[in-house]
Design a protein around this nucleic acid. Structure first.
Length: 156
DNA sequence: AACATAGACAACCGCCAGTCA
DNA sequence: GTGACTGGCGGTTGTCTATGT
């Protein structure tokens, strides 16, 4: 027998949250605090699964969230922390007050990755692209060329 | 004006670790 | 010691908006 699902999917809403749902969730947490997420939806009168409520609260409704654009300073900090921790978004978020792991993850994937690439830096390894790329390319190209030479017998 | 494409971000899914009976 | 349950995390997807053609 497998694990029971975290909620009754048939009786829960999915997709974007409505203003009314937000208000209910905020009101409930303000009155009772962050308690048991599993029972929260029922107690708060929400047709959502506990996980969904937790995510909505943490990523969007928490009063201490900063929201808005990341500053240049935050950018650099994220890059530095990523080079130390890798994709440990919660660790990185812990060092950026008012920012959530989800927000940082999205920001990384949509903007910082591109920013680093345009600087010629590999966002995974934080090494200059040429260095790591050339290593990879020479190995794979070598293999391809070798094979081509063997199969065609011609090298221009 | 209409459509296509890219970018941004909210939300979901599945897995894992910790806790407790 | 073991299995069920829960919270938390990272990866991925879906949807909305902006921009280009």
């Amino acid at each position: 027998m497998g694990r029971s699902p975290c909620c009754e999917k048939a009786h829960t809403n999915k997709g974007a949250w409505t203003r009314e749902e937000d208000e209910r969730l905020v009101a409930y947490i303000q009155a009772h605090g962050e308690g048991c997420w599993r029972s929260l939806p029922k107690s708060a009168g929400l047709l959502r699964c506990g996980k969904s409520c937790r995510l909505r609260w943490i990523n969007y409704l928490r009063p201490d969230l900063k929201r808005g654009n990341f500053t240049e300073k935050e950018d650099e900090l994220i890059i530095k922390l990523h080079s130390l921790f890798g994709n440990k978004w919660s660790l990185i978020a812990g060092r950026l007050p008012g920012r959530t792991d989800n927000e940082i993850k999205n920001y990384w994937n949509t903007r910082i990755k591109r920013k680093l690439l345009s600087r010629g830096v590999d966002p995974l390894t934080h090494r200059p692209i040429n260095e790591s790329a050339i290593d990879d390319m020479t190995t794979s190209l070598g293999a391809v060329l070798e094979e081509e030479e063997i199969t065609s017998g011609i090298w221009v």
